[in-house]
Simulated assay, not measured.
Amino acid sequence: MGREPGNPTMTGKTLEHTPAARRAGPKGQPPKAPASRPTPPAALYPVAPVANSPGGAQQRRKRQVARTMRRFEAAVARLPKPTLRRQNAPATGEATRIWPVRTLLALALLLALAVAAGYLHNDPRWFVYRETVQINGLTYLDAEEIYAASGVDSWHILWLRASVIRERLRALPFVEEAHVDIGFPNEVRLDIVEAEPVALWVTNDQTFWLMPDGSALPMTDKRYDQLPPLIDPQGDARVVGRTGRMALDPLVLGAAWSLWARMPEISQLRFNQDYGLNFHLPGTLTWVYWGDGANIDSKFAHLEAVQRLIADGETRPQVIDLRFERPYVH
């Protein structure tokens, strides 16, 4: 069927079924406006901001910061986590049990040491006094002087050294040897070997025992009466000894010992300030002025020469003066 120009028709459809007809209401009424579709949520369909708008740049920066933070958090999460537990260390519960036990043991040990030190330091039973010191071997020495010289009075037993005490005692002029034993809690034993006198020093005031170094000790008995005497009425050969006691000049004693050794028949050896050592020549009426202990060998040589002259009857001197380099005989 032909279509008239200017009057379009629809095949298989009437005018009422066209969209325009559907929008039109009943005849004589204006057509209805098409119903608006509901707007989808913005979250489901985000609309990109305009490229050059300020809001678009801000959104890009936020996304960049978010990406950077996510990368940083991921990198940190991959790092190994630090731990304070040592390798091969016991479990936490076991370490908690072990350390308090060790600490308590150390504290108990320190406390015991402190108590022991206080006991040793303050208990009077550990201090040395005269009644806890035993002194043996004395015959003429005074025990109180030996005790004072030992230097042990009121000392704690732990501070004493036997070798030091022994050296103090051996330094005494009248002690030949000393043995020291220290025992707990406060016992000290001193075994003394007294020095033997070598001569007698006879003065107007007193007679002394003479030790090899010239130290003099007042004679207390007659046990050494057989020793050779040095008669010094005024005590002119007196000097101050190393212990502060009176002593005989060691040079004088040395010369006297030489005379006694070479001429044991000398009955009396005397000393005075004017002539020094002097003696009566045995078997004659001659008196010898020996002087001091200098030039002993030459003095003996001169004396032997004079003795030969006397024996040959060539001279009968009254005095032989050997104090000078050239002897004087008259």
Results as ranks from 00 to 15, higher is better:
132 T>L: 14
270 R>N: 09
212 P>C: 09
166 R>A: 09
6 G>S: 09
309 L>F: 07
266 I>E: 06
254 G>D: 14
164 V>Y: 08
169 L>Q: 09
309 L>R: 11
57 A>R: 15
80 P>Y: 05
186 N>W: 02
190 L>T: 00
60 R>S: 11
39 T>P: 05
21 A>E: 08
56 G>P: 02
317 P>A: 06
325 E>A: 10
57 A>W: 07
136 N>L: 06
281 L>W: 10
14 T>R: 06
281 L>Q: 10
327 P>H: 09
120 L>K: 06
213 D>M: 10
214 G>A: 07
283 G>D: 06
186 N>Y: 00
237 A>Q: 08
299 K>P: 06
33 A>C: 12
138 L>C: 07
86 R>F: 14
189 R>N: 02
111 L>V: 11
147 Y>G: 00
155 W>P: 04
153 D>V: 02
217 L>V: 15
289 Y>L: 09
263 M>D: 05
150 S>C: 05
169 L>S: 12
143 A>H: 01
93 G>L: 05
185 P>D: 01
45 Y>G: 07
171 A>M: 02
120 L>P: 08
208 F>K: 01
131 E>K: 11
234 Q>E: 15
286 T>M: 11
303 L>N: 07
144 E>D: 15
321 D>T: 12
311 A>F: 07
184 F>M: 06
130 R>Y: 09
30 P>F: 01
141 L>V: 03
150 S>N: 13
251 L>F: 00
97 R>I: 13
150 S>T: 08
198 V>E: 02
